[in-house]
Design a protein around this nucleic acid. Structure first.
Length: 597
RNA sequence: CGGGGCGUAGCUCAGCUUGGUAGAGCGCUUGCUUCGGGAGCAAGAGGUCGCAGGUUCAAAUCCUGUCGCCCCGACCA
């Protein structure tokens, strides 16, 4: 050991390496040369890839599947992933958050303490160690940070604090799909902040909201911030960051007249205008086989929107509750479960329970004479002269009116909004679009700090439970989401900020032409010396395959070096998103000029 | 979890119904020609047919089990 040190030292150059030193310039072994880079692309689209991002990531050699929802990131893909990571890290640090790294494997005790060991379903990966002790593979880390805070934070002087990590998570999704978009193992940036009071939490929430906007703007992706339900993690205020894309798994309602936007789960609308007076007489109609609103509406030749359906669910007191919806509307389970008389999570009544309570088959239910309390959605409560089940198998009623034929119902917001509903802020109409959730910010409040018994002493020496927020970004998913938004029929079109390389050099006929070979080598060296991330396609391919690969892997700038151009002192420059190429002077200065943002 | 489908060469798939000892295209290797948008010719390498059992003289093929993967559904009065 001791003898080696001087030797090592003496081999070190006396000056620090300069830009353009051998290592930077890319000696023959450098990965910047495609002949040395393990790039495996395919022309054919793999059979099991459905969405574009998945197809292109496989074809471009970014990822390879190991098992359902589990992927290896190859060098090309990893470069992109790490760029996304770097932007997130920079902006989180700039926002005053502190990076930590928590364990992925967590003792079950912590999860039992928070109550989530019991609450979380099979999505939580649980396993035992050699001593038969229970562990979970962390799908999220509220328990672990909260425990950290509990141990280390004692005084109000240590708050607020925001810890974040970029780490591998595992969620045993019901159905992993779309490649890395809904994987089981994925990379996530999760941040957790702790505060003395709600005002300070709100301040940090706004700080994170602005930070996320900066992050996605820098990445170069179009996004939308939407109101959200806080879901399994729990808490109050919550918004999601979505990349708008056809293939998105989430439905969003966005106003065309204001900046209102919400996840369908949380989207609201303005209650409809007042109910029209009753005009029709109550009448029983035979509907022997018509059990759905669609079938009844078709039989009677009426619009679906003048039918009413009942959905029977378990009540919070153990009994049943009937939820009334207009036939053309669908139940929003999250809204329903928030009603004080409805059991949470939402549980549908069984057919047997329905028969016992209504005395008829499901499919013929209605509010007239119902023995079960009815809660009507605002739109259903605004109906008059409507059609609904007669509570008698094989029959429906028409000309039904609240107040006259059925008890005036309690009215609540129970349904999913539909295209064209008025925006709740009164400006514009809602339009349903699809999005990919790439970020989510929450105010959890004291949920976990309370469960784990965290207290700090305030200025008066009084114990106080901190309130908390949590903020996540699906790093792996961002990569897929960007591709969903940035691609064409030839391949990926990376935004500059996260492209694996900025420019690709395509020499044509370098094996034949010494001039081309020399020009390409020189340009490559000069660009590297200028600090440009350049990929040099020195594989000696024919132009077709070479261009096809360049387009597929999506490098933003392409320089073609050929004999024809060189004879006129020109390179050919093409942006990935341009239709045609343009000649530029055959100098590195001219190339650098093109790369300037 | 319920329903459906598929596992055969690196990839996409044929062969299975009617058992007889495995094929195509692409890719890969070598040579020659070619060289500005996925070239041509020639010669090659490459498969315990997911795994285990069973039936049979004989199994990729028929039967049973098992593992893996994919798709659909989980909103219904």
């Amino acid at each position: 050991m001791r003898g080696q040190r001087p030797a090592l030292k003496s081999r070190r150059p006396s000056r620090p390496p300069q830009p353009g030193s051998a290592a930077r310039r890319g000696a023959p072994g450098s990965p910047m040369r495609l002949s040395q880079f393990p790039l495996v692309t395919t022309k054919e689209t793999p059979a099991d890839a459905e969405v574009v991002s998945h197809q292109l990531m496989l074809r471009a050699g970014m990822i390879r599947k190991l098992g359902a929802g589990i992927y290896t990131w190859l060098p090309l893909g990893l470069r992109v992933l790490q760029k996304v990571e770097a932007i997130i890290r920079e902006e989180m640090n700039r926002a005053g958050a502190h990076e930590i790294l928590m364990p992925a494997v967590i003792p079950a005790e912590l999860w039992q303490e928070s109550g989530r060991w019991a609450k979380y379903g099979p999505e939580l990966l649980r396993f035992k160690d050699r001593h038969q002790r229970d562990f979970v593979f962390g799908p999220t880390h509220e328990e672990v940070v909260t425990d950290l805070i509990r141990r280390d934070i004692r005084s109000y002087k240590q708050l607020p604090v925001n810890f974040y990590q970029i780490q591998t998570k595992f969620r045993d999704e019901i159905r992993p799909r779309f490649g890395v978009m809904r994987g089981r193992e994925f990379l996530m940036k999760d941040a957790y902040s702790f505060h003395l009071d709600a005002q300070d939490l709100e301040r940090e929430y706004q700080n994170m909201r602005a930070t996320y906007a900066r992050i996605f703007t820098r990445i170069g992706v179009e996004f939308r911030v939407v109101k959200a339900d806080s879901g399994a993690i729990g808490g109050d205020r919550s918004e999601e960051f979505h990349v708008l894309a056809q293939s998105g798994e989430d439905v969003l309602a966005v106003s065309d007249g204001s900046d209102y936007a919400a996840n369908l789960e949380a989207a609201e609308t303005r209650p409809q205008s007042a109910r029209l007076p009753a005009a029709a007489a109550l009448e029983k109609v035979s509907t022997p086989t018509q059990k759905t609103c669609e079938e009844v509406a078709a039989l009677l030749g009426i619009p679906l929107s003048s039918t009413l359906k009942l959905i029977v669910v378990k009540g919070r007191d153990g009994g049943l509750v009937a939820l009334a919806l207009r036939g053309d509307h669908t139940l929003n389970a999250i809204k329903a479960a928030k009603h004080p008389n409805v059991a949470a999570p939402l549980a549908l009544a069984s057919d047997a329970e329905i028969r016992a309570a209504f005395g008829c088959e499901p499919g013929f239910l209605g509010p007239v004479g119902a023995q079960v309390p009815v809660i009507a959605d605002h739109a259903a409560a605004a109906l008059s002269d409507f059609v609904c089940g007669a509570n008698q198998s094989g029959f429906h009623l028409r000309g039904v009116n609240w107040g006259r034929d059925a008890a005036e119902p309690e009215s609540a917001d129970l349904r999913n909004v539909v295209d064209g509903d008025p925006s709740p802020d009164g400006r514009g109409r809602l339009k349903l679009v699809r999005g990919i959730e790439v970020g989510h910010i929450f105010q959890n409040g004291p949920l976990y700090t309370q469960a784990l018994g965290v207290t700090v002493l305030d200025e008066q020496g009084k114990a106080l439970t901190p309130t908390a927020g949590c903020y996540g970004i699906g790093v792996t998913r961002v990569v897929a989401a960007v591709i969903e938004q940035c691609h064409d029929d030839r391949g990926i079109r990376w935004p500059e900020a996260i492209a694996p390389f900025r420019v690709i050099l395509c020499p044509i006929g370098a094996e034949k032409s010494a001039a081309v070979k020399t020009a390409a080598e020189t340009l490559y060296a000069e660009l590297l010396a200028a600090g440009v991330e350049v990929l040099y396609d020195d594989r000696g391919l024919r132009p077709g395959p070479m261009f096809a690969d360049a387009d597929l892997i999506g490098i933003p700038h392409r320089i073609v070096i050929g004999d024809k151009g060189l004879a006129e002192g020109r390179y050919e420059y093409k942006r990935r998103d341009a239709q045609t190429a343009e000649p530029i002077p055959a100098t590195s200065a001219a190339v650098l000029e093109k790369l300037r943002p």
